[in-house]
Write a protein that binds this DNA or RNA. Structure first.
Lengths: 255, 255
DNA sequence: GTGACTTTGTGCGTGTGTTCACAAAGGCTT
DNA sequence: AAGCCTTTGTGAACACACGCACAAAGTCAC
């Protein structure tokens, strides 16, 4: 209905799934480059990137025909082509909003600067943090958000605040003209059409691991007999049973 | 070929894509629960989780038939069922390896404790950090890794070290019996069959954003004329051109 | 108890992604 | 220059995921 994003298949023919893998290839290529390797076969590169070689070839074929049959791909050349396709040949100005533990970690993360991402500003709502220098950058107050975005020409905002503050700040950065947001807060951000949001959620990944871990051990429900939930109204349900009456099963902090 | 994981469709019928969304639903449900909501329709919950309502219903139907037609889903009951399916009704013991900026952020992250994940140990190779208390936990030396895993019955290892150290440490935790690894280091970890690895890469997400951002502005290549790479050997290529001679286009730090 | 209304659960068509397998293409050797 | 060998690029089959649209199932009002 209203506001479907529906941008599978990127923008111009490159499938979304491929785009998501290009950075992985790029990293593998950098690593090869450091070791002085000049040429790789799809088989080698695929293995370094942890994917199937046919998939790798098809992915690369979306960028153009950059390999040499019988030989492979020239590392340096491919690095450039992927970088260019991803937009890493130009600089992107990033602002990090929220300078808690995570914000600090991000500010100091080498992987940003090395890929054409320039962290130009750190912002926080806590007055006592304003002015503090972190990774060589003075923290600005969140009240200056719009001004800072404008000043530095920020094009990507990284939200590393508590969940409760995230949507409001997101609205503000979008209103200020930012069209790409990387969200670390555990909430679903809603944004207008044309704005991209990507989400990184630390605890979701753990939960997925827990699911598989549970399956490795024994089925769900963890064992003996019916597990809790003394059937207060729910007659016959499909699978599994239910927890003890009034308990709060998980504490629910994130909001 | 050898060692294909190929576990689409989880373990027992629940599609991987569904598993990945369950934590999102769970979060939305917790938020509703806090607001005292007792019942939700698929439409409401879907909107809170940022997905299509048909998809939500299909996802939930994989767990069993937990809704009431004409009414919706009972929040508390659904919270329990999803928690149980994900394995959050039992406690998972987590060790965080690497206590740099990121490791600290993770150690203090509320989203873990609140979901049945108990951070039982922090480890680092830096002698000067050993003994320091972070979020109420004393840092142990990485030499004690195996002992710590055994002591606490660690079942999930979080790797938050530099890339160079990651594979070696991964091998060690796997040898010590851990079968689930959450990797923040920018490398592809290789593990034996039966071990699950999930990867969180901060810079990959940014690169994907950059790709889309570039598309919004103007095509790739950033503009006027042919962009660099003075055709040193590459005659006629498919798309786009190439960068200036001997330059290192991106600095390549992560290894 | 009956009927109108709401909302679930799902069958089905469509599109996306993955993998196999092979022809086309290039290099290298003789 | 001819033929062999390697590796790419892709056609085609398959598997998975998504979302529409609707029948089945239940509630609520009267």
């Amino acid at each position: 209905m209203t506001r479907r994003h529906n941008r599978t298949r990127g923008d111009r023919g490159i499938p979304e799934a491929t785009v998501a893998r290009l950075p992985v290839y790029l990293r593998a290529l950098h690593s090869l480059q450091e070791r002085g390797v000049a040429t790789v076969s799809s088989e080698e590169l695929a293995s370094a990137a942890g994917v199937n070689s046919a998939k790798l070839r098809k992915d690369l074929s979306h960028l153009g025909s950059y390999g040499t049959r019988g030989v492979g791909y020239e590392v340096e050349y491919l690095v450039y082509q992927i970088s260019r396709e991803l937009g890493l040949t130009q600089d992107w100005v990033v602002a990090i909003i929220g300078v808690g533990n995570l914000g600090r970690a991000l500010a100091g993360y080498g992987g940003f600067a090395s890929r054409g991402f320039r962290v130009a500003a750190l912002l926080d709502a806590d007055e006592s943090l304003v002015g503090e220098r972190i990774s060589g950058l003075a923290v600005r107050h969140i009240d200056d958000l719009e001004q800072v975005i404008d000043e530095h020409g920020v094009s990507i905002a990284v939200i590393a605040t508590p969940a409760a503050a995230a949507q409001g700040l997101c609205d503000r950065v979008v209103a200020a003209g930012v069209t790409s947001v990387l969200n670390f807060a555990p909430v679903v951000l809603s944004v207008p059409e044309g704005v991209d949001v990507r989400k990184v959620d630390l605890s979701i990944e753990l939960q997925i691991l827990a699911f598989h871990e549970q399956r490795k051990n024994g089925g769900p429900g963890e064992g003996q007999g019916t597990d809790g939930w003394e059937g207060n109204g729910h007659g016959e349900r499909a699978r599994g049973d239910e927890p003890p009456e009034t308990t709060q099963y998980v504490e629910a902090v994130d909001a």
